[in-house]
Nucleic acid binder design. Structure first.
Lengths: 187, 187
DNA sequence: ACCACATGTGCGTTATAACGCACAAGTGAA
DNA sequence: TTCACTTGTGCGTTATAACGCACATGTGGT
């Protein structure tokens, strides 16, 4: 049963925060006995208590509930080769992993250098995190300015682009090759 | 604003499919009385029954639960800082997205601060990219030293931990949650 | 008018979620 | 050792989710 995922997610969230059951209890307003039972899969929480938990941990509900999205193994969009035409310097930080459907690049742009990119495959999401300098990202036909320490996530199945500031920039560029939106035709 | 969303979503879903309460009950295995009460907001369903409903309608759970607007990159309400009492300071860079199954944190550790983490759920992978200072990552019982600009990817379904150098450290921490392709059928 | 059927809601009972409290095990300090 | 404290789990009680079955209303058909 899928409730197991909730038990796992809750365990993860609480473990990641390093909180005990007691502290989690008075942070969320849910008794620690109940939290324990939920983690052990001995109880199927109501959405009301789930909401309390999510609110206590300052997380969206979706962080607790396992996504029902099923990965299509025949989806070959994950085997797309991403090429950076031109002169940008790209260093692979995390190589592509088919299990994750994700890869991360370290990109350096010289001052005022601009790089435009056409639409990628459907369902591709990019994340950008600026390490140094100033970067502008073209999203929805609009240049969004980003400074060091700032990040932006955007769908990459639209035309987009990068433009460095006057001092150049370095940034991390994560590509997520997510499966297309779930259409619930099982039968 | 939360439970109400479920009532609304369920009403919409059922109305869109043109099903009566009886047929919906018949289809989902949830009594029509309960479905009616949920729609009227007189009852807060458990995730178990929510799952039955979602499965009966062949929809993902996110279709019933108000999905947080984390898709809008300009929504900065999700980019808040979460400080867990007595623990590490974590800033959410990219919030959890159920379609990606990924989230990214900006973590700061004070000098020599150590944070150990037990095993997460099976299939969880973590990535770490050091922004400043020196960080050691406990992987497979071994402390791996990382300097600024270096990254490490490792399975997080084993006990692992982080330890800052003498000057403290800041790093990016990406979590990748594996998406189970299994659809367990509930008797 | 009647009927046969379907709609959604109310009621009584059962199953169980959620609570508060107490307990056993573990940790560290004096 | 003992004490003080925290960890997570078990137990008894209460609140309520979920059920089956009935009822009131509302169609359309003959």
């Amino acid at each position: 049963m899928e409730s197991d995922e909730i038990t796992l997610k809750l365990r993860d969230v609480r473990a990641a925060s390093g909180l005990s059951l007691s502290k989690a209890a008075d942070l969320t307003g849910v008794s620690k006995a109940m939290l324990g039972q939920i983690e052990r899969g001995e109880s199927s929480p109501t959405i009301a208590t789930l909401w309390k938990i999510a609110k206590g941990f300052q997380l969206p509900l979706s962080a607790l509930i396992g996504t029902t999205a099923s990965r299509d193994p025949t989806d070959d969009s994950v085997f797309r080769t991403v090429t950076f035409p031109g002169s940008i310097k790209v260093k692979i930080v995390f190589p592509f992993d088919p299990e994750l459907g994700a890869e991360t690049f370290h990109v350096a742009l010289s001052p005022n250098q601009c790089h435009e990119s056409p639409a990628h495959a459907l369902g591709v999401t990019e994340e950008v995190f600026v390490l140094e300098g100033m970067l502008e990202v073209l999203r929805d036909g609009e240049w969004v300015p980003l400074h060091a320490g700032e990040g932006l996530r955007f769908p990459a199945d639209l035309p987009h682009g990068y433009r460095a500031g006057e001092d150049g920039t370095t940034f991390l560029n994560m590509h997520h090759y997510a499966q297309p939106a779930v259409l619930a035709s099982v039968s």
